[in-house]
Write a protein that binds this DNA or RNA. Structure first.
Length: 509
RNA sequence: AGGGCCGUAGCUCAGUGGUCAGAGCAGGGGACUCAUAAUCCCUGGGUCGUGGGUUCGAUCCCCACCGGCCCUACCA
């Protein structure tokens, strides 16, 4: 049996869940659902990143402990994913004991292998940013953001010998051309490696909200160092090695483009340092942009846009869970930046969902009601829609397998379009009762049954509802990919009309 | 500031070293009335950011510039 291990980044708890987080998570969920549909053994992991200075400070500001603070803030994330019908298999929090254990094992191994040493971190510090900049990153000794003079500060830290892996990383990239997709992002990571790697500081003494360094308890690991390792914690690294052997070779990390360096350079190097193969695949996606500007905290603070303030729940209330999921998956090609707008959601909703899909179901069910007493005719074996259905299924399958949900949905909608056109050609509403009429309607119903399956990774609830209204036994997920084959409707089922699946949105605000 | 990605029809985006550069939506024309004023058919021709260069020939290759964005010890 094929296996599929998909991860999202773990989200930093200080952020409130916003549309950007939802985007990544929904994509991962849809991919996981597709693979389950295909009968694969799937492990879908998401979670929260809970260490670091910012968290400790936020907790202090709220007059509570970091642990109590993260208990609250982490809850916002799994609540959001529940609201979005995200069916994750595991939700990891970096404050969990299992994670501490794995991190210490993993980094001790790297230490034992000689890739961690003590050094002096010297950096230029910006008081306003509360952050360090390297000399190269600074604007002639001034903060690139604030323009103030930077002060030089230094700190004794443990360093990871990243520089030792330049050659091995290049070899790995050369031997695994699909390690990072899409190709432009791969090139970006590769160019960074080829440009030369410097050792990086991986511990802090200035804070204590982190995982202690086993061999030097005065230090805690820098957040990113412990965060990346969550992907191994969840599969039992250092605790259940057989599970690592099962899942690590089929691991897929879904990440946003801003964290390419961590996942495509640091992380594979860390794995190599620990004597582990790098992850199997990293899929990078772009950003949702609003009016050409990113949904960032900085912009929000400046009042330019406030979309990070848009909670997924707000959009769910306005459009429904599945329409939102559909929009996120369909609107932009994974890997590219995409435009995010209310107008865009409304258009997708009205055109793709209400007019094409919802209306198709409504018109077919209506004609069956009036002409066939509401009983579904079985599909004919010789059918015009058989080829378009097979084609849509094949294209959708190929698209999901190459992490292209937008293309999978586009393929699915080609079948919906073909079915609407088919109805126009035959005009069953004008036909006399009889075999010919039943054949036409049977065909249309069969196409809808297949659409219900194809649409299930993106819109699970809608998929189930279509299935139910078609009077079919079982469920689309139970039918699986085998259910895509033409001619499986038994016929004779009683259809249910029901209210509009997607009532048109008439007057957008 | 340095490194990187991107800039294609009104909008959102595909795409290729060379026959007329594509799709969806919007717009225009027609058909139909089963359906959520839905559906179906036809249609419009955009200096492929700007200026150079390489080439027999570039939107796709190289350089510069302009604009947007990402990274450079927060961050999908």
């Amino acid at each position: 049996m094929a296996r599929f291990y998909i991860t999202t980044p773990i989200y930093y708890v200080n952020d409130a869940p916003h549309v950007g987080h939802a985007y990544t998570t929904v994509v991962a969920d849809a991919l996981a659902r597709w693979h389950r549909l295909a009968g694969d053994d799937v492990l879908f992991l998401t979670g929260t990143d809970e260490h670091g200075q910012k968290v400790a400070e936020a907790a202090a500001r709220h007059g509570t402990t970091p642990q109590a603070w993260t208990d609250q803030t982490a809850a916002r994330f799994h609540d959001a994913w529940d609201a979005l019908n995200v069916d994750y298999d595991d939700f990891i929090r970096t404050t969990e004991p299992r994670h501490h254990e794995t991190v210490q094992r993993f980094l001790s191994t790297i230490y034992d292998n000689g890739y961690i040493y003590k050094g002096l971190y010297r950096g230029l510090y910006c008081v306003s940013c509360e952050d360090y900049y390297t000399l190269e990153a600074s604007a002639q000794g001034r903060c690139p953001v604030h323009g103030q003079l930077l002060t030089e500060m230094e700190e004794e830290n443990w360093f990871f010998r990243l520089s030792a892996f330049e050659e091995r990383l290049r070899d790995y990239y050369d031997q695994h051309p699909d390690f990072v997709t899409p190709e432009t992002k791969r090139n970006e990571a590769y160019a960074f490696i080829a440009g030369g790697l410097k050792d990086i500081s991986i511990t802090r003494t200035s804070i204590d909200w982190g995982i202690p360094v086993p061999w030097d308890p005065a230090h805690v690991f820098y957040v990113w160092y412990d965060a990346l390792i969550n992907y191994l914690t969840a599969i039992g690294y250092g605790r259940e090695d057989s599970s690592v052997a099962t899942w690590w070779p089929v691991s897929h990390h879904l990440i946003g483009k801003e964290i390419i360096r961590f996942h495509c350079v640091w992380w594979p190097a860390m794995c190599l340092a620990a004597g582990l193969e790098p992850p199997h695949h990293v899929q990078v996606h772009g950003w949702l942009l609003v009016g050409g500007q990113k949904l960032s905290k900085t912009m929000a603070a400046e009042g330019a846009v406030r979309l990070t303030d848009i909670a997924p729940v707000t959009l769910i209330e306005e459009f429904g869970v599945d329409p939102l999921r559909y929009y996120l998956l369909r609107e932009t090609a994974l890997g590219n930046d995409g435009e995010f707008s209310y107008e865009g959601i409304i258009q997708r909703y009205n055109v793709d969902l209400a007019n094409n899909l919802g209306n198709l179901l409504a018109r077919v069910v209506r004609v069956v009601e009036t002409k066939c007493a509401g009983l579904a005719p079985a599909p004919p074996a010789l059918a015009e829609l058989r080829a378009p259905a097979a084609d849509a299924g094949a294209r959708a399958r190929e698209a999901w397998e190459r992490f292209a949900p937008h293309a999978a949905l586009e393929a699915t909608w080609s079948l919906i379009g073909a079915t609407n056109a088919f109805l126009e050609r035959h005009a069953p509403w004008k036909m006399e009762p009889g075999g010919a009429l039943e054949a036409v309607l049977g065909e249309a119903l069969e196409a809808l049954r297949i659409v219900a399956i194809l649409v299930s990774p993106a819109m699970p609830a809608v998929s189930d509802e279509i299935w139910r209204r078609l009077g079919l036994a079982g469920s689309p997920t139970e039918a699986g990919l085998a259910g895509l084959a033409w001619g499986q409707s038994p016929g004779g089922a009683r259809l249910e009309a029901g209210p509009a699946l997607f009532p048109r949105i008439v007057s957008p605000s």
